[in-house]
């Protein structure tokens, strides 16, 4: 993570602008993936992404609640202070596939939540503002809970011996 002074989050409004975008973009990405999986008839994974979007929505509301009555800075998309190309909980699009199974989808989500947690933990360690550090530590704890929930879902997944999804009419069979 970047510890250059210009990359440190220095105020509560700036921190909440980051947190809100992080949560909102995560929800949008899961919704987009759920739609996409439905379109490609992978309904089980679509349902999982829909569920993750729902949980994300609840969390986004909580974060937005912290910002009520506060004027947040307008930050261009490319000037947010993450070390990832997109906001940390927006999983990389190229990591998904229409034949992915529940395990892969959960691993994808776990990776995203872990990046989100690491972002908040980094802010909690590096911000010069004590209130930002306090809030970031609180958000880190919440994200750690999400990480642990996903880990437990993965542990309890009963997919041993299940065949990977198969497309009987794959798109890459040329005539």
């Amino acid at each position: 993570m970047n510890t250059e002074p210009s990359q440190l989050i220095t105020s509560v409004p700036e921190f909440l602008a980051h947190a809100i975008l992080l949560e909102r973009e995560s929800v949008e990405r899961y919704e987009e993936l759920a739609d996409s999986m439905e379109t490609h008839n992978n309904l089980e994974v679509a349902q999982l992404f829909r569920k993750l979007a729902h949980f994300g929505e609840l969390h986004a509301h909580e974060v937005e609640h912290h910002a009520e009555g506060m004027e947040l800075p307008e930050i261009p998309p490319w000037d947010f202070k993450w070390s990832t190309p997109e906001s940390p909980e927006s999983g990389a699009m190229e990591e998904v596939h229409y034949l992915m199974g529940t395990r892969e989808a959960l691993e994808f989500a776990l990776h995203n939540e872990t990046r989100g947690r690491d972002f908040y933990a980094h802010v909690a360690e590096t911000s010069p503002d004590p209130e930002v550090r306090r809030m970031a530590a609180e958000f880190t704890a919440e994200e750690t809970e999400h990480v642990n929930i996903l880990k437990s879902w993965l542990l309890n997944l009963t997919d041993a011996g299940e065949e990977p999804l198969e497309d009987l009419d794959p798109p890459n069979v040329t005539e």
Partner: peptide, 12 residues
């Protein structure tokens, strides 16, 4: 809703 394959770069 886009019909693009999940993972397609065009989403970006």
């Amino acid at each position: 809703k886009p019909v693009w394959c999940p993972g397609c770069g065009h989403f970006a």
